[in-house]
């Protein structure tokens, strides 16, 4: 291929950032993987130790709690966010007045960073100054809402804040899907005598499932790499009750100076992500192949 000088700016604009970004991501991913097999502590250097870091990390209580939390948080956050988003989208789809305003309001939390969300919710959920205090001051003195300081329930405060932040995003995708449903289908179902519930469960929602899967995958990978929300909302506490894998990585690497173990934990996170994204990628590929052949 002959290099066309007049198109040089285009090549520069595309390839330089791409190479830098790819180089950064791939290089550091490989480097992290390498370090995870060494005895590195404060400095990224050390001897080859095989899988020792991995067995160590997997044996710590910290990691076990973090992974159990990830299951609870991941399941609660993904399912409830998708359901909330779908519910909002269905309500907004009823050709109501002020739809644009409402849509912006529901989408707005997405514009905030998780740190802001986490901080705001840490105030709201703080029993001494948030919702509990408000209800108590209104006269219901026996009201308790202290999940934030409750070991068993604290993880659910993160779920709540996560839903608040992300359900607008799910709503926007679902709404686009609902709007792309062919109007004649709804008319045909009306003539067939389908009520609103049957109309949604049998006719409209089944045609939305590609969007459902896309939303799920995006939410799952958000859940797996969640760090800032927990950091700002609970700091991983009370104790280590709301640890998530990303916090464990941070803890090993920068609090305890154990780069090797931290890297091993990071690679484990990467593998978890891959376990979600690879099947999705393969599924998309098969879909495209099938569409191309059809």
């Amino acid at each position: 291929m002959k290099l066309n000088l007049r198109r040089l700016p285009e090549y520069l604009v595309i390839w330089v950032p791409l190479l830098l970004a790819a180089g950064q991501i791939v290089t550091f991913a490989l480097w992290t993987t390498w370090i995870s097999f060494t005895s590195a502590t404060l400095m990224p250097s050390g001897d080859w130790v095989g899988l020792k870091n991995y067995t160590n990390v997997l044996a710590t209580r910290n990691w076990k709690i973090a992974f159990d939390n990830l299951l609870i948080f991941g399941f609660g956050f993904v399912v409830l966010t998708a359901l909330t988003g779908l519910f909002l989208a269905i309500l907004l789809d009823q050709r109501i007045r002020g739809e644009n305003v409402l849509r912006s309001i529901f989408l707005y939390p997405l514009a905030l960073s998780f740190v802001v969300t986490g901080t705001a919710w840490s105030w709201l959920l703080n029993p001494g100054m948030g919702v509990q205090k408000l209800v108590n001051d209104l006269g219901w003195t026996g009201f308790r809402f202290d999940w934030l300081v409750d070991r068993d329930m604290a993880i659910w405060t993160i779920v709540i804040a996560g839903i608040w932040q992300s359900s607008g995003f799910a709503m926007a995708l679902f709404l686009a899907g609902l709007r792309s449903v062919e109007p004649d289908l709804v008319k045909a179902a009306q003539i067939d005598g389908a009520g609103p519930f049957r109309l949604y469960t049998r006719v409209i929602l089944p045609s939305l499932w590609p969007i459902v899967i896309a939303v799920m995958v995006i939410l799952i990978q958000t859940a797996i790499r969640t760090f800032d929300l927990v950091r700002a909302l609970t700091g991983g506490g009370p104790g280590i009750a709301t640890q998530l894998p990303a916090l464990v990585v941070y803890d090993f690497m920068f609090q305890r100076g154990q780069l090797g173990r931290g890297s091993a934990a990071a690679v484990l996170m990467l593998l978890t992500l891959a376990a979600v994204l690879l099947p999705y990628g393969i599924w998309k590929y098969v879909q495209r192949r099938r569409a191309a052949n059809a």
């Binding site: 004649d184 289908l185 179902a189 089944p206």
Partner: peptide, 10 residues
């Protein structure tokens, strides 16, 4: 209907 409006999931 002109578009047939068959329910695609059924």
């Amino acid at each position: 209907f002109q578009s047939y409006a068959l329910y695609p999931s059924m």
